[in-house]
Design a protein around this nucleic acid. Structure first.
Lengths: 366, 366
DNA sequence: AACTATTGATAAATCGATTTTTCAGTGCTG
DNA sequence: CAGCACTGAAAAATCGATTTATCAATAGTT
């Protein structure tokens, strides 16, 4: 069993001693520098093998003055979107020989700033920041003030200091508008978090402009709460209590979709008979529930790929003005979207659930 | 704007120069060592302030030979369970002045081993490992072979080399059994992933033993697939196609619950009229869908807290035999569980959805 | 007054690597 | 054979901190 094996790990000097060469030579062998006598190289390899030597990447980075570490700062880890984002970023970093160190800001700008400082302390080579607010929040300021290399993603549109990559919210929302208006909806409630500045504004305006272009008489109600989800829930509840009866709800973010669904439950409304629902952000469960929930799928993999691509270009010294990329989304129209119900629903409904047994999803090609 | 500020960050020597003292003195001041003349301390503080000096934690750790880094290895980041786990671990590590570096093994033991080696290269102070398989997989072996300090969580029961912390699967499953048998179910399908060794076995046996104790004539069918989810889906589909008609399904893990739901959809079966469903692992959406889905809630926060507690004890040198903790789960009986339907359902059903508008959840106190 | 303790600070060693400089030996040329 | 370029390896400097050893100046003791 435990062979009393609290081995202090061998350093490059231990290897050098065993091989009867200098540490510098070991380093060269490890890096494949050709100016080493084959015989010595062989002895180094043997010593490495025997001792089980592996270089300490942090000690190595210390000397190089460029750490092979990429920092990622995300609002949370709990959602599929950010979870999947971390997975992608991790893979892309490792592909280039870097290690990803991810941290969650917990939707707090203070914590975001604190993490950024820590990333700077760690001298990370670059940072992928999904800001709590938007590109004009404290995060970007800090990164700029400290001369850090970074890319901003997700809740951003474009920035004068950093490259940005995000979903094409504007087009996606426009497509949602075409879908809802096309099906006859003329009174839509849009819910979202105002805190998430520019991004939410894009989603909202993309929807509003296209909807109004298709029918100027459309009525669009908007409920935006500043920071937290619970006030939003309260506002929505209040809105419905006042007797407002939109025929569809468009949620600008995932939690909003959940809140909307739970408020529908409270009132016994069913989708799409009593009200239609479509939300930004897809999730696995949305394709297996009754009804399946229509959603805008953000291209997580592409956002991650583009962000890392830009980031490493900057790390490698590329200059030039910041770029702003928008990646195309996909709207999955599922069962939660239908035509408006005939009369003003009262809170009852028919009791009928849709009993479709069609395949999985219905990709929507505009 | 950008004040050409590619500041090379000041080192402790820069501070020393500015303050007119030695680097050693600066280090002492930064650590609050009292044997420093107040006047000198003052000058150091001023220099630190002026230069914006912050110590490089990695350089500092290099000398101390104990890095203030905790590694976390999880099968994936995409689920609420592991996402939430990372968030908790992150907070608990930082509370003690450590940084959490999380990595995902992507349900692959090869990758798990690779990450462990990297963690070892990094000389992390300790590792929280949620193994892909169970405590007897390659991960534990590697940790032991390399004399690493670590704790195993989630898919484990107990180990002879490492402390373990996990949900009390046995009790939770027993409670599910009491609930289902109590409601009259006598034919239950249990689905899970066999790969996840000991843990799944505990969940399965906890269920089976209690169910059979309550009624020896109960019929329990089990579908366990080795590695991937898709073969499981195929097996379930095949099972139902053969005409098997259990009155309830108990899924031993989250994806199984999703697969079950989607297979119900395919056949047009509704919960709980046509079939009941309860799964291990809760998720936010389960309380807002129609029907709401019954689930075993794992105490993520407690598992994380206990794991970190044990880990830091070991890091601080505590010896003694490994401990094995089981944290109590909570069963949330929601609408997806009901009494068995009267006759053998055919694939039709009544078309009626439950229209409950009761509060949120129904915590179940055994 | 001579010697020892004490205090506060600096110089130097260290952590584990990389990189630059120096150096010894070899081969070639004139 | 002296002089020079070249090769391969060792020695030393470096990264940014901490820690140990050393030292100077002051205070205290007899």
């Amino acid at each position: 069993m435990s062979s009393g094996a609290v081995h202090k790990r061998p350093s490059i000097h231990d290897v050098a001693n065993h091989a009867g060469v200098s540490a510098a030579t070991v380093s060269k062998v490890m890096h494949g520098v050709p100016t080493v006598k084959p015989e010595n190289a062989q002895r180094v390899f043997e010593a490495v093998e025997r001792l089980g030597y592996r270089a300490d990447p942090l000690a190595s980075d210390l000397r190089r003055a460029k750490r092979r570490i990429i920092g990622a700062i995300l609002p949370e880890f709990e959602s599929e979107f950010f979870g999947s984002m971390v997975t992608h970023l991790e893979r892309l970093a490792e592909l280039r020989g870097y290690t990803l160190v991810a941290a969650s800001s917990g939707e707090s700008e203070e914590r975001e700033a604190e993490i950024l400082r820590r990333m700077q302390d760690w001298r990370v080579a670059g940072v992928v920041l999904a800001p709590v607010r938007d590109e004009h929040g404290r995060g970007g300021e800090l990164m700029q003030a400290h001369g850090m290399t970074g890319v901003m993603i997700d809740r951003v549109l474009s920035d004068k200091s950093f490259d940005t990559v995000s979903a094409d919210s504007l087009s996606a929302s426009a497509e949602v508008a075409r879908e809802l208006i096309g099906r006859g909806h003329r009174h839509v409630l849009v819910v979202g978090l105002g805190e998430q500045g520019a991004c939410v504004r894009a989603r909202l305006e993309g929807f509003r402009k296209t909807a109004e272009a298709l029918d100027p008489k459309v009525r669009i109600d908007v409920i935006l709460c500043e920071s937290d989800v619970e006030p939003l829930r309260a506002s929505i509840r209040d809105y419905f209590s006042r007797g407002e009866r939109p025929t569809a709800v468009f949620s600008l973010f995932l939690k909003g979709t959940l809140v909307a669904l739970s408020e529908f439950r409270r009132r016994g409304w069913h989708c799409p008979d009593d009200i239609s629902l479509v939300g930004f952000d897809d999730a696995e469960w949305m394709s297996v529930t009754w009804p399946t929930i229509a959603a805008v799928v953000q291209p997580v993999g592409q956002i991650a790929a583009q962000a890392m691509d830009m980031l490493f270009r900057r790390i490698d010294g590329e200059t030039g003005p910041p770029t702003a990329r928008l990646e195309r989304c996909q709207l999955l129209v599922r069962e939660s979207v239908g035509a408006p119900s005939s009369g003003p629903h009262s809170g009852g409904g028919t009791g009928q659930c849709p009993r479709l047994s069609e395949p999985e999803m219905t990709p929507h090609s505009a």
